[in-house]
Write a protein that binds this DNA or RNA. Structure first.
Lengths: 353, 353
DNA sequence: CTGAAAGCGCTTACAG
DNA sequence: CTGAAAGCGCTTACAG
């Protein structure tokens, strides 16, 4: 019973409906004027033969794939446990779907390869445009990517020389600065910054924001308070030890560039018998699903990745459909979700320097 | 300086290298015999003109896209916070990349649409094959999908009538049964099952496993112990209330079909002043990144979704490249990760019925 | 409104 | 080893 379909083409349908193939094409491509009777005849023949236009042939003909490219560094395990990736996909998918596009996602085996793969998609015209998420873009790669003159939008800031590409990003620097300000406002004076990968631009931007916030409060920064946990739980855990060699001068508050490292901090602090938030405060980043359910519930800087991705997809598709280069740059504000991992530093003990 | 490339075709290169277009094609498609000198000439011309073969044209010609389809229900927020999705992508990407494929991922606005979209990808031949993840497959849709005779592999069990499709799944039923057995072995007699969406087949399979485990231990099941939290944290939270109306007969252990619901259980139990694992034990499912970092660290049934996805991709690509229908069915064993949310039920209090 | 033709940019038997 | 031709399955000016 479940007989399988043989693939039929526009010519088969044309023969069966006794019209020219171009007529069949017209009823399926939708835009042309077709008399109702022949449309019905064609549709019926198509139904009989289970015809569906071949998307690839159509793409070749109209020079449009209805597809947007993304490259995912699938070799980094952490990439799939972090909430960035799912949110990115959610945002991209949401607007792609609404606009009739699909995502062409390719793997890559490292940051170098990310550009190779992106370039390949563009150069072979496998997609109508691409969104590039690497946080380690140098001038040359952006230049190379742009030269393909296929629409491109960046998630993250571009190098200064390419200030005119379309990009969308979070307010990494200023949001971090605000977190520091918030902590200072609660009486903290010795505040630590735990970044991810020091080479990534997000992490650099956050560090700037940290220094700016400390400076604005007139606070000196000890280099011992700056540490990198490479976005891993264990990195956060180890940061506790590295930042507290001199307990007398140890931080009373930590800002971590993702929640996983904040969880590591929580664990390291607990092991040392340091109470959070009683003695030390912690704020994470990304507001991952677990944040609300930790003990103590973790205050976290929520970064609107989904909205960022959705905006990127919108800019990209707008450009594809208008035939112009993608334009515009948009920064989305992060938002500190206050929970219970931060407490005002007890006045009596507040080390006002 | 950053002049953009005009797109060049095989004919431009042929003209410049003074050879026939078919020769250019041959040097790029790799398989044909070409003299070293003309190969160099062609390569140089190609470099000059920045030529890269158009992937779509090639696809149309060879009738192969080097692409495998996946449909993602992007309208369900929970889908992107659960660890299933990232792991699925990781596994798919890992083998696709290794085999030179990319993923064509499309959104869908609900379970109905999932089949519509999958069918569309198949019927329009936009991908060489597809992996279908829906857990609500009925006989008709599987039949319809198969009739397109484009390779198809299922993640999850197929309806009985389609036992011969290729599929790969976790050992949902038996693993759940083993968890019950494990709990029974620790002295628990009143054990609750908190499922996700009762209509999904995974949840049904787990319920069977639960009943089987209870039966094997000679334990009667109270229907009050069976509840559904729809995979949400709040669902787990509410399940506490619903399962403990009669505290004298309340469960001493809970099995939840995902970690998010287990987290909700933890919260609900804590609010009632019930100590975990002192008074009640909890085991979750999926071993999400947060599980290890909860208080208490959550014991969880780790389901190897990444491996499942990788296997599915392998079966699919094997089929695509051999030209035969995908074959084989594979079930991957889950593994209980023991942490601290389970404790033997104190002998003195053990309600041996 | 419909047909006939040329074209999208490749590939691949078929000759030689 | 290389050329010339036909074809992959659509679309879309151009006529009428």
């Amino acid at each position: 019973m479940s007989s399988s379909f043989s693939v039929s083409t526009i010519r088969d349908v044309a023969a069966q409906a006794e019209v020219h193939p171009s007529t069949v094409s017209r009823v399926f491509s939708g835009n042309a004027q077709i008399s109702e009777t022949t449309r019905q005849r064609v549709l019926e023949a198509a139904r009989d033969l289970n015809f569906q236009p071949n998307a690839i042939a159509r793409s070749l003909s109209v020079r449009r794939t209805k597809t947007i490219g993304v490259i995912v560094p699938h070799v980094y395990d952490g990439y799939f446990t972090d909430s960035f990736f799912p949110q990115l996909m959610a945002g991209l998918l949401e607007v792609s779907y609404a606009r009739g596009y699909r995502l062409l996602v390719g793997g890559c085996n490292g940051y170098q390869d990310e550009h190779v793969q992106a370039l390949d998609i563009l150069a072979t015209r496998q997609a109508d445009g691409i969104v590039v998420t690497s946080s380690r873009l140098d001038v040359d790669t952006v230049g190379e990517l742009r030269r393909q003159n296929t629409p491109l939008v960046l998630i993250g800031h571009p190098p200064a020389q390419h200030a005119d590409v379309a990009w969308v990003d979070a307010d990494n620097r200023s949001a971090t600065c605000q977190v520091i300000d918030y902590l200072v406002g609660r009486g903290h004076r010795r505040i630590a910054y735990v970044g991810g990968d020091p080479d990534s631009s997000v992490v650099k931007e956050r560090l700037e924001g940290y220094r700016e916030g400390m400076a604005a409060a007139g606070l000196a920064v000890s280099e011992a308070w700056i540490d990198y946990g490479y976005f891993a739980e264990d990195g956060g855990y180890q940061a506790v030890e590295r930042t507290r060699r001199d307990e007398a001068n140890a931080p009373t508050a930590y800002y971590a560039a993702n929640d996983l490292m904040a969880i590591g901090l929580l664990r390291g602090l607990r092991e040392r018998g340091i109470d959070v938030p009683g003695q030390v405060s912690v704020v994470g980043t990304n507001d991952s699903p677990e944040a609300a359910h930790l003990l103590p519930p973790l205050s976290s800087l929520r970064v609107p990745y989904r909205a960022i991705a959705a905006t990127a997809a919108t800019l990209l598709i707008d450009a594809i459909e208008s035939g112009e280069q993608p334009q515009g740059q948009r920064v989305w504000a992060s938002c500190l979700i206050e929970r219970e991992s931060v407490q005002s530093f007890p006045d009596g003990f507040s080390p006002k320097n």
